[in-house]
Simulated scan of single mutants.
Amino acid sequence: MEKNVGGIDRTGRIVVGLALAIAGIAALTGYWAIGAVIGVIGVVVGAVLLVTGTTQKCPINEAAGIDTTTDDSR
């Protein structure tokens, strides 16, 4: 799989992923009372966003034919 996540998309995924993961962990540890199920969802979605942002590879983007990288040499 080639890289298909770049620029603002990559930055947004990393920032939102970190925020969701932290919020989910806070919910799971009882620091934030929004529920354990919401906490688990936050951690999972946050982790997926962090992985796709840091690896710059997203299977959903690939399936949809979306490429947000700025490399036009392909």
Rank of each mutant, 00 (worst) to 15 (best):
G35M: 13
R10F: 03
G30K: 05
G35V: 11
A21R: 09
G24N: 03
G12Q: 00
G6C: 03
S73I: 08
N61L: 05
T55A: 03
A23H: 08
I60R: 15
A27R: 07
R13G: 01
E2D: 13
I34P: 03
G24M: 02
I66K: 05
S73R: 06
L18D: 00
D9P: 00
T70L: 10
V16Q: 07
D67I: 09
T52P: 05
T70D: 15
K57L: 07
L50I: 07
D72C: 03
L50P: 05
K3P: 00
T54E: 09
A47L: 11
L20I: 03
A26I: 01
I60G: 07
A33S: 12
I25K: 12
V51Y: 15
G53C: 02
G46S: 07
I60K: 03
G7E: 05
L18I: 12
I66T: 13
N4M: 02
V44W: 10
D71L: 11
E62N: 06
G6F: 09
I41P: 04
A27V: 06
V37S: 14
V51C: 08
G6P: 08
G65I: 11
G35T: 07
I38H: 02
A63Q: 12
T69L: 00
Y31T: 12
L50E: 12
L28R: 08
A64M: 13
S73M: 03
V51L: 15
T55F: 11
Q56M: 11
A26W: 13
A47W: 12
I34G: 13
G39Q: 05
I14M: 14
T69G: 04
G65Y: 06
Q56S: 15
I60Q: 07
D71S: 11
I34Y: 12
I66S: 03
A23W: 05
I8Y: 03
R13M: 02
V45C: 09
A47D: 07
V37G: 10
N4Q: 09
V45S: 14
G53K: 08
L49W: 05
A63H: 00
G53T: 03
K57S: 08
V37D: 11
T70N: 15
A63G: 13
I38L: 15
A47N: 00
G42L: 14
I8L: 10
L49F: 15
R13Q: 01
L20H: 02
V44F: 12
V45T: 14
I66Q: 01
I66L: 08
D72T: 09
I66N: 11
G6S: 00
Q56W: 10
